[in-house]
């Protein structure tokens, strides 16, 4: 064994690039614009394409409004997990430990808890105690209020009055294994991550942070890691509409000195 020689070559955990797919009633919405995609709403085909393009993980956000169609996400995850062998995170509508269990059994590797973490923080503790911190992601939607950031729910419409940094620390202490941090000020603006927010949270906790909200170009991904201290970057529209490929994003990050999986 040649430890020394190997040590000098590669020794850095890659920063992750994670495409996020919004799913409702079993279909991917907001469109995904790949070349020659037969069905722009088919989650399995889209997942397969992202896998081939080098996505490090995939996140599915279930935005199904009606509880009648909630189980459709389980079928999607089962189908995707049968042919795409990278980590899958699923969020949206997770309210009880039983929801976490059903998603994990369907093939999800991580389950993201958002609103229910606010209404019932004990869920984060119960789920991580039962299934391990490694599979519990807490999604935090934060918005600047005066000189600090507060946690919002319901897509940024409802404030909780909770300080985002304190909330992140609390979620870590309850057993979250990772935080998915979305700036509601930046989401959809394409003006880049809220780097101050991302850095403040990332530096305040010891668990990995996924930065989300506001990506409009590849430099924003670099900034999220460099300036925001993010461990992973999540984006939707820049990848879905074919503006940039995952491989292109990774090469750009690599050129800017960020370790990625190529």
């Amino acid at each position: 064994m040649n430890w020394r020689a190997a040590c000098s070559e590669y020794k850095v955990l890659a920063k992750r690039i994670i495409p996020c797919l919004d799913v409702t009633n079993g279909r991917v919405v907001k469109g995904v614009n790949f070349v020659e995609l037969k069905d722009a709403g088919d989650p399995v085909e889209i997942a397969r394409r992202y896998n081939e393009a080098g996505a490090d993980e995939l996140t599915f956000l279930d935005i199904t409004a009606s509880s009648d169609n909630r189980d459709l996400i389980l079928h999607i995850i089962e189908a995707v997990a049968s042919e795409v062998f990278i980590p899958l995170t699923v969020g949206g509508g997770v309210r009880a430990v039983g929801d976490v269990q059903r998603l994990l059994n369907a093939g999800a590797d991580k389950v993201s808890i958002n609103t229910s973490a606010v209404t019932n923080p004990q869920l984060v503790k119960d789920a991580s105690d039962r299934y391990g911190s490694q599979c519990i992601v807490v999604a935090i939607d934060a918005k600047r209020v005066g000189d600090h950031w507060e946690v919002f729910t319901h897509g940024g419409r409802k404030t909780t009055g909770l300080d985002a940094i304190e909330w992140a620390k609390k979620m870590e202490s309850l057993g979250a294994g990772e935080l998915l941090l979305t700036s509601m000020d930046r989401d959809g603006t394409k003006s880049g991550f809220d780097l101050d927010l991302t850095r403040a949270i990332s530096d305040a906790v010891d668990i990995p942070i996924i930065a989300s909200g506001g990506v409009g170009n590849l430099q924003h991904l670099v900034d999220g890691v460099r300036e925001g201290h993010a461990d992973a970057v999540l984006a939707a529209s820049i990848f879905h509409f074919g503006e940039y490929g995952i491989d292109e994003a990774k090469r750009y990050m690599k050129q800017h000195g960020i370790e990625v999986r190529l």
């Binding site: 064994m1 430890w3 190997a6 070559e9 590669y10 020794k11 850095v12 955990l13 890659a14 920063k15 992750r16 490090d56 911190s133 490694q134 294994g177 990772e178 530096d203 010891d206 668990i207 990995p208 942070i209 201290h229 461990d231 992973a232 999986r261």
Partner: peptide
């Protein structure tokens, strides 16, 4: 849990890392 530049390394160790074959 710090890299050579002094950056904090997060735990869990989560993501894609290089695996060196020792045998």
């Amino acid at each position: 849990m710090h890299d050579e530049q002094g950056n904090k390394l997060k735990v869990p160790h989560m993501g894609w890392n290089n695996v060196h074959q020792a045998m």
